[in-house]
């Protein structure tokens, strides 16, 4: 049968269990306290998760939006063939927006 995947599965599971059993669950209280105390004063946002995503770690979110933009453009370009890409309509659209 498929011996290699089962062997890999066993190795992965033992390694993962070993890693998880040593995991420190005492989440860092300093970072948590800093975010919770300064969320309302510094950013004005009552939702601490929202404050982290869009303010404290906004550059992370910017990179993630870049990945989303690149993926969407790639999907658009792969899904449309060259003949169906409608270059004429695209040129019309561009000339319209430029004339405005």
């Amino acid at each position: 049968m498929k011996l290699v995947p089962i062997f890999g599965l066993i190795i992965f599971t033992t390694l993962m269990l070993y890693a998880v059993s040593d995991l420190p669950i005492t989440h860092n209280p300093d970072v948590k306290q800093y975010y919770l105390q300064n969320a309302l004063e510094k950013t004005g946002s009552a939702n601490a998760v929202n404050a982290i995503v869009w303010d404290f770690r906004a550059y992370d979110t910017l990179g993630e939006e870049t990945v989303l933009f690149a993926a969407v453009i790639a999907v658009f370009l792969i899904a449309h063939k060259k003949s169906e890409f409608k270059l004429k309509t695209l040129k019309k659209h561009i000339s319209k927006t430029q004339s405005k």
């Binding site: 950013t43 946002s45 929202n50 869009w54 303010d55 939006e65």
Partner: peptide, 15 residues
């Protein structure tokens, strides 16, 4: 309220 996060929420949702 919310400073920048208000506008960032709106534009992020559009994106």
């Amino acid at each position: 309220s919310g400073g920048d996060t208000l506008f960032a929420n709106i534009f992020g949702s559009i994106i």
